[in-house]
């Protein structure tokens, strides 16, 4: 390109920029248009730069072209579309929010903190976040002492191996948390712990009274296999059968595979079709439910899980960016 052709090239570049739509959804189209323009002006070595604004659907464009005297020229254009400078720099109302549960917004940074505490298998991260939010709000009024908070912090540090002052400080730095913010997080964790304990205690006896069949103690053996297995084979003569999963456990009747739950002591089941495989099981011993501490604890946990699942079903949930 020569110096004399720079003027028309600049004018053409400005016209290109004027015609681009300043929306995130239009960036790919803008690049295509700019590529065509660059192909038509090969001596300019033109490149379009798209900069989406954080928290906004708007995008700024710059056009880089060769300066015939050496170096690079950057063109940027702002047409007067009637939006004021401040409106042009406005932030979408939900820019920093990930979701809203029952009217309470959850910011991206809060969600990141929550994600560190998610542990339950079988739930998607989305489901876990919703339940975490419901619990946080439900537990907000729980009173906790400094001792409770310290215990929560000790447990948290132990689980993550953050046992020394230096490893803890390093972890806080990596997470971008101050010591005070960590303290607040642990206070929330202690409230959550206290709320769960209180709910388990309150809900346990009623749940056990309504569902005693789920809380019989059972001693059971069962296998899940690709090919049918006879009950008689569970006496230890499985021989070379390795295409199976064998479980031998003392557990609650409600936690058994469904076909085994009501089987009396000494009874066997199977082979029956179960979860796409064959189930064969044997109940060695069965003690009907009694309201002792261990059973009440298990009933309380089951009742709490049910309460949380019901609350999650009822919750009004809005995912802002999914």
């Amino acid at each position: 390109m020569t110096q004399s052709s720079l003027g028309p090239a600049l004018e053409s570049g400005v016209n290109l920029l004027r015609g681009l739509t300043r929306r995130r959804s239009a960036v790919a189209e803008a690049h295509r248009t700019a590529d065509e323009w660059a192909t038509a002006h090969p001596s300019l070595a033109a490149q379009l730069v798209a900069s989406p604004r954080p928290g906004s659907s708007l995008v700024d464009y710059d056009l880089l072209i060769e300066d015939p005297s050496g170096g690079t020229i950057m063109l940027c254009v702002q047409a007067d579309d009637g939006a004021s400078w401040l409106v042009d720099h406005a932030t979408h109302w939900a820019a920093s929010r990930l979701l809203t549960v029952d009217g309470t917004p959850v910011s991206v940074s809060e969600a990141m903190l929550m994600l560190r505490s998610l542990t339950r298998p079988g739930l998607s991260p989305q489901d876990e976040l919703v339940r975490f939010c419901l619990l946080r709000d439900a537990a907000a009024k729980e009173q906790v002492s400094l001792y409770d908070i310290q215990a929560a912090a000790d447990g948290f540090r132990k689980r993550r191996g953050l046992t020394s002052r230096d490893t803890m400080r390093e972890w806080l730095d990596r997470m971008g948390l101050s010591a005070e913010a960590f303290h607040d997080h642990m206070a929330a964790s202690a409230r959550d712990h206290r709320f769960r304990a209180r709910m388990r205690e309150e809900l346990g006896p009623g749940h056990l009274a309504r569902h005693p069949e789920r809380f019989a103690r059972v001693w059971a053996t069962w296998v899940l296999s690709e090919e049918p297995i006879d009950v008689a084979e569970l006496d230890g003569s499985l021989g070379d059968r390795w295409d199976l999963r064998l479980t031998r456990a003392r557990t609650w009747s409600g936690d058994l595979p469904a076909p085994l739950r009501e089987t009396p002591a000494g009874g066997g089941v199977g082979p029956v079709s179960h979860d796409g495989r064959f189930l064969t099981g044997l109940i060695t011993e069965r003690q009907e439910a009694v309201a002792d501490a261990e059973t009440l604890e298990a009933a309380g946990q089951a009742a709490f899980d049910q309460w949380l699942a019901d609350a999650a079903k009822r919750a009004q949930i809005t995912w802002h960016w999914l």
Binding site: R23, S56, S57, L86, V87, A90, T91, H92, W93
Partner: peptide, 13 residues
């Protein structure tokens, strides 16, 4: 005010 039908806010920028 709204942009593209969505509420927006102006913060200190």
């Amino acid at each position: 005010f709204q942009i593209d039908g969505e509420a927006h806010t102006v913060f200190t920028t």
